[in-house]
Amino acid sequence: MENLSVNELRRYSRQLMLPEIGPAGQEKLKKARVLVIGGGGLGSPALLYLAAAGIGTLCVVDDDLVDETNLQRQVLHDAAGVGLPKVDSAAAKLTALNPHIAIRTMKRRLEPDDVELVRDWDVVLDGSDNFRTRFAANDACVAARTTLVSGAVLRFRGQISTYKPHAGPEHPCLRCLFPEPPAEGEVPSCAEGGVLGTVAGMIGVLQATETIKEILGIGRSLSGRLLTWDALNATLSTIEVSRDPSCAVCGAH
């Protein structure tokens, strides 16, 4: 426990009690580096819980400003922050929540060729709100051999999976399940179709949980499974996903 201060031992005491974590696991979390794409509906709860859990270095990537329409679900921001860059609003809140961790920010979008950017992180958590960024994150993480925890929400539904094809032939990437993003206008955005704020909260918290599990190497990974939640019907479902040998990104070619 030489890397944990007295204050940290007290702060994290409830999760230190868990045999799957303990002091050694907490030190792993302290050394971990997580890149979070998007400081919005999914990124907000994910970042709050990752910061609270003691992830040592968090980086928020977002090019947007806080808007009043965000506040119904993006719980990392508040009315006083409207008009500010989301990365600045996020950094202030996360630092206030946990001064023991490092917060970095990038006011930009992630691009498909950002391989070196994602290579520097233990896990990338994708909370983006558009297919272009979602697929860019997948392609960059596959090339960089970085684990990706990806979530999406719309209306009363959400989904989450973990993608790490570098871990072995049984592990798919996003394109094994969805080879190409849908045509423009085929799937509405949250701005067009709406979303219940708690659905974003649920999926974002699940993403934080799966990220912590991947860092610690505990439990059963969501890799190879797509978990979906239907809030209206109160149902959780899991779909098995296999690696596609002909996948344009992670297949044998």
Rank of each mutant, 00 (worst) to 15 (best):
T198L: 13
G204C: 01
T147Q: 00
F131D: 13
S128F: 11
D120L: 15
V123A: 05
G168N: 00
R175L: 01
V153Q: 10
G151L: 02
F156M: 14
D126T: 13
L206A: 12
R104I: 05
I103M: 00
G219H: 04
E210V: 11
L117C: 10
V149K: 01
D120M: 14
C190E: 09
G158H: 09
C141S: 00
Q159I: 01
V124N: 06
G197L: 11
G151K: 07
L154R: 03
F131H: 10
D114V: 06
L117T: 10
V118Q: 12
R220A: 15
T146N: 05
M202W: 10
E111M: 15
E210W: 10
E210P: 03
T147K: 08
V142D: 08
D114H: 11
P165H: 07
D122H: 15
V124P: 06
L196V: 13
S161C: 09
D122L: 07
R104A: 11
H166V: 04
P172A: 01
N98M: 03
D129W: 09
L125K: 02
D139F: 08
F135S: 02
A143H: 05
S150A: 12
A136P: 03
L154H: 07
R134Q: 12
I203H: 11
G185M: 00
I215P: 03
T228Y: 11
R119D: 01
R225P: 02
D126F: 09
E170R: 13
G151I: 02
D129R: 08
L226K: 14
